[in-house]
């Protein structure tokens, strides 16, 4: 993030272009839209259905701060909702960690869902559409995978599950 950004101004289109570039540069350096630095990760402990709502609302505001469109922010919030729901349903408690990604050249968001629950016996099966062990959930993980750009899962029986997902700004 060293170079300057030049925007030639000769029409109203350039004005939009210039302010968009200014905004993304500010966000890239780590400012939130309100102007405060957006560097730290946000941790949300998950143990009840209220926490699911809390986690996805925080995820949405980080996504918007990074510069995602409202549509993309909804995809991210929905993925967080599903991940948090898995924690409540299968592990009872855990945490969601949300972080803005400023690595150049791309901006993005990373969400980690971590629990010390029973773990997933057969990950391959869990990633197939339509799989559910509790009966209360249908599409959890494969759906989350579709909503996000990157998906990693690490699960050990009786030790817990960690899911890490990322989405990049287009």
């Amino acid at each position: 993030m060293e170079q300057e950004i030049r925007v030639p101004i000769s029409s109203d289109k350039n004005i939009v272009n210039a302010r968009q570039k200014g905004r993304s540069a500010a966000l890239a350096v780590g400012f939130s839209p309100g102007g405060t630095a957006l560097e730290q990760e946000i941790r949300v402990p998950i143990s009840s259905d209220k926490d699911i709502v809390d986690a996805r609302q925080k995820g949405r505001s980080v996504a918007l701060a990074v510069g995602f469109s409202p549509g993309a922010a909804t995809l991210i919030a929905t993925a967080i909702s599903e991940l948090a729901r898995n924690i409540v349903s299968y592990a009872k408690s855990g945490e969601i960690v949300i972080q803005a990604l400023h690595g150049s050249p791309r901006l993005g968001i990373q969400v980690i869902a971590r629990d010390q629950g029973p773990g997933i016996h057969d990950i391959k099966q869990a990633l197939r559409d339509g799989f559910s062990t509790s009966g209360s959930l249908g599409l959890g993980l494969p759906g989350v995978k579709r909503l996000m750009d990157e998906f990693q899962i690490d699960s050990r029986e009786n030790r817990g599950t960690t899911v890490m997902v990322k989405k990049w700004k287009q």
Partner: peptide
Amino acid sequence: QPEVAFAMVQLGL
């Protein structure tokens, strides 16, 4: 809402 509908179909709902 449009965004909500789009996220839903991506999830398969």
